[in-house]
Structures are given as structure tokens and as C-alpha cells.
Amino acid sequence: MELETTRFGKIEIKEDEMILFNQGLYGFKNEKKFVILKEEESDFFWLQSSTNSDLAFIVTEPWNYIKYYEFDLNDELQKELNISSKEDVMVINIITVPENPKEMTINLKAPIVINYKERLAKQIILDDERYQIKHRLFYDENNKQVADNA
């Protein structure tokens, strides 16, 4: 199928590449279908809506930058997403890129959990004070590097 996007123009995707968010994303409850657009050599990729050509989020797998990041998937979420093996799970987090890219932040508070095999996903909110909505990806407030690979 052909998908019209604001950032990438027309792109061809397969129906089985779609990821279904039964409850949408926070702030975008009506947006239920997305596709991941990834370049081979980058830690960053796009979560592009299939119904809204303007809606795309820069995302990354958190462990590329935050090695200590961890949380448990409760039984309810595992059932909702038909998760039977941890190998089927992909976790991504939304990135915010301000005018100064050194000030990029990652939303550690609300990760997106994807059952890549079943193409089902849900954004969850973690009840863990260590994780913030705007965690500096590369630098802390004193401009010291905090990412393991920065």
C-alpha cells in the first residue's frame, strides 16, 4: 500500500508492517496504526502514522543511550499484547529534538511496548521516579555527558 507522508513523501509499505495501537498514543487516542521507518545505520527512527501524514515521532530503543533503564511488563500488558516471549518485544521511546540538538530529550516515563511478532503496541506510563518525561539524552544540566555512548 502507498502511504503519503509529510516528511518522506509517498512511501510503499506492506500491510503486515503496520503496528496497531488499540488505545492510540497519549495525546493521540484516535491514531491507531503506525509504521516504523528505520535507516540501517542510525539509532533513531520514525514512528509514522498511517492515517495522518503530518504525524511522525522520532524514536529510539532506550538502551542505546540509557543502560540502566528497566521495567517489568505486568501480566495484564503481556496478555493485552499477546506477548509469549521476550524476543518478540521491542521497546521504543519518543525523542524531542529542540533547536539545539545537544538538548535532545527522551521520554523515559512513557515507553512504547511493541509485540513485533503480533504487530500490537501500547504506550504505558511507568510509576518510577527515576524516569522523567524529558530526560536529557546526551547532557545533564551542568553540560556533562550522561549517555553511555555520547
Rank of each mutant, 00 (worst) to 15 (best):
R119C: 08
N149E: 15
D148L: 15
L137D: 11
D148W: 15
D16K: 02
E15A: 09
K79D: 12
Y131Q: 08
F138D: 10
K67P: 15
P98N: 04
Y116H: 10
I13R: 00
Y116R: 11
K117D: 08
Q132C: 01
V59A: 04
K109I: 04
F44T: 08
L73T: 04
I133H: 13
Y131S: 03
R119W: 03
D148S: 15
I11Y: 01
E76P: 00
V35H: 00
N74K: 12
I124G: 11
N107D: 11
E61P: 07
L108R: 05
S49I: 00
E15V: 01
Y139M: 11
E40Y: 07
P62F: 09
G24D: 05
M90P: 05
S50K: 00
L137K: 10
K10V: 06
K67N: 14
N143T: 14
D72Y: 09
S49Q: 02
W63P: 02
K109Y: 07
K67M: 12
E87C: 01
F21Y: 03
E129L: 10
T6N: 13
T105W: 10
G24A: 07
E4G: 01
N64F: 14
D128V: 04
F57T: 05
L81G: 12
P111R: 06
P101K: 13
P101Y: 13
N74T: 09
L3F: 00
F138Y: 15
I36Y: 00
L37D: 05
Q78E: 13
I133F: 15
K29Q: 07
K122E: 12
D75S: 14
F45Q: 08
K38Y: 04
K33E: 02
E141P: 01
N30P: 00
F44K: 08
G9V: 01
Q123L: 06
E40N: 08
N74P: 06
K144A: 10
R7Y: 02
M90S: 12
I11P: 05
F34M: 00
L37C: 05
E99G: 04
Q123T: 09
L3W: 00
D140Y: 05
L37V: 12
E118F: 06
L77C: 05
E70D: 09
I106E: 09
V59E: 02
N93F: 05
E2C: 00
N74I: 10
I66C: 13
V97D: 04
K109F: 08
L25P: 02
T105N: 11
I66W: 14
T6Y: 13
P101M: 11
N143W: 13
Y131P: 04
S49V: 00
S53L: 07
